[in-house]
Design a protein around this nucleic acid. Structure first.
Length: 429
RNA sequence: GGAGAGAUGGCAGAGUGGUCGAAUGCGCUCGCCUCGAAAGCGAGUGACCCUGUGAGGGGUCCAAGGGUUCGAAUCCCUUUCUCUCCGCCA
């Protein structure tokens, strides 16, 4: 949700910023409707003021023994008029909200216009491994190692699902344990939220109404009262709603959280042959970091989050790079996003393992997430930030591919070994 | 799943048709007092919207939505959530 006041007073700036994100918006008709709306509010509120005045008179005059029949009739007419105008205002409000709901966030001033093609690599860590042999695809590796069962995964869940088995399940869990431990060291609070969320959660996150069809929805008996519920596509959707409709004390800020959840996504129509394997599934594990900050602290917080995600990758020793996304490639709710991408040799490409974003006050406005500034005593909107730290589904393929040996074995990253019973390698069966 | 009770301001808790955004207590803020603190005393203390340069003025909000009424925290309906009891269960 954008600030209506900003749209009114800095229309040109907002228009330019949205254009960078690829949205051509003409606010002319909107602002005219907004003017009419405010006129209508003024009218109906004047009538209500009149009603309240007379309403307070009635009991006094009754007590004084005066006849109020005439007044009651006049009040009836006044009330009918108010009801009519109220309905008109409500219609205008709804129309305005629908329009505002669909506007994406404004990109930060240092975020360049355009789509994916304008993303810029800001740093790179490590190097592409040089194999002295023909490297294998991770699908072949994990099958020969016996750590992922694709066929039976599809049997159970359909296409896009797999099963981690044995050391595969163990290394997956080791990754999560490693991430968890690092976040705890940094003082982040660990949360395990519900995986089924109400529609309001999707709205606050900025994912609804636009992306309702991209999540697995529960309807009918599973959804209380017939209302929509859905299985979360990322823990961000849960974490951003933690403080919905709250006014936090400024001294609590910043609030730093992390959560583990599987993420469930339809990924309809996104299957591509080159993404065979575990690079894109309907379910994957992820640890998500989240921060609630004061507006003036969110830029630094974003750098902190990216830095944390990078350190996790460095700990694993995986070659990766960090890209700053162009405006059009950021999610609707975000004003600035960095992606961390890991090198997948078989794809000859880098694939996202973490996305760190600053939503500014966009989500905060939608969910009424506020804090009370001590200096002024007034509530203000918080800034929200989220970053994967990390998603595992592309890390396991990266590990087996980047660390594969000529004999088909895979060297386990040092940091994971304590959760792997001290094993140094995964060997083909 | 069945039966019942409930949802009021930061918290506790009054209020069953009009003068109630809402008693009272606690908390918090400021002042007095004090070397300082506590106690005591006094004053203040919600959010949102419209309007206004400002001071201010007006409106809305007592879980949510709808209804009755000139008028609803209060009466009626629906939904959600919480608690108690029974049943079932990982």
């Amino acid at each position: 949700m954008l600030d209506l006041q900003l749209i009114r007073t800095q229309t040109a700036y907002v228009t330019e910023a949205l254009a960078r994100k690829g949205h051509a918006v003409d606010f002319g008709p909107f602002l005219e409707k907004d003017r009419l709306r405010r006129e209508a509010i003024f009218e109906v509120e004047s009538l209500k003021a009149e009603k309240n005045r007379v309403s307070a008179e009635i009991p006094k005059r009754k007590k004084a023994g005066q006849d109020v029949t005439e007044t009651l009739a006049a009040m009836k007419r006044l009330s009918d008029g108010i009801a009519e105008k109220d309905a008109a205002v409500a219609r205008m409000d709804t129309e305005q909200k629908d329009f505002l709901d669909r506007l994406p966030n404004l990109p930060a001033d240092d975020v360049v216009a355009g789509g994916k093609e304008n993303n810029r690599v800001v740093r790179s860590w490590g190097e592409k491994p040089a194999f002295g042999f023909a490297p294998k695809h991770h699908v072949d590796l994990v099958e020969s190692l016996g750590i992922i069962d694709y066929a039976r995964g599809a049997k159970l869940g359909g296409s896009g699902f797999w099963i981690y088995r044995g050391d595969g399940a163990r290394i997956e869990w080791a990754l999560l344990s490693y991430f968890m431990e690092e976040h705890l060291k940094d003082g982040y609070e660990f949360l395990l939220p519900p995986h089924i969320l109400t529609e309001a959660c999707g709205y606050t996150a900025g994912q609804f109404p636009k992306f309702k069809d991209d999540v697995f929805q529960l309807r009918g008996e599973d959804a209380e009262g017939g209302a929509l519920r859905f299985i979360l596509p990322t823990a961000e959707t849960a974490l951003v709603n933690l403080h919905r409709d709250e006014i936090l004390d400024e001294i609590l800020l910043p609030l730093r959280y992390f959560a583990y959840t599987p993420c469930y996504r339809k990924e309809a129509g996104s299957y591509r042959a080159e993404e065979r394997g575990m690079v894109r599934g309907h379910q994957f594990n992820k640890i998500e970091m989240f921060q609630y900050t004061r507006p003036e602290d969110s830029d630094a917080a974003l750098e902190e989050l990216v830095g944390k995600a990078e350190r996790l990758m460095q700990g694993l020793g995986l070659h990766h790079r960090v890209s700053k996304l162009a405006a059009g490639d950021c999610s609707d709710a975000m004003r600035k996003t960095y992606d961390i991408e890991v090198w997948i040799p078989s794809m000859d490409d880098y694939k996202e393992v973490s996305s760190a974003s600053n939503a500014g006050d966009y989500q905060a406005r939608r969910g009424s997430l506020r804090f009370r500034r001590r200096e002024t005593g007034k509530p203000e909107f918080l800034h929200t930030l989220n970053a994967s730290g990390l998603a595992t589904s592309r890390i396991l393929p990266a590990i087996v591919e980047q660390f594969q040996q000529a004999d088909g074995s895979v060297v386990i990253p040092e940091v994971l070994r304590k959760w792997m019973g001290g094993q140094e390698r995964l060997r083909p069966r």
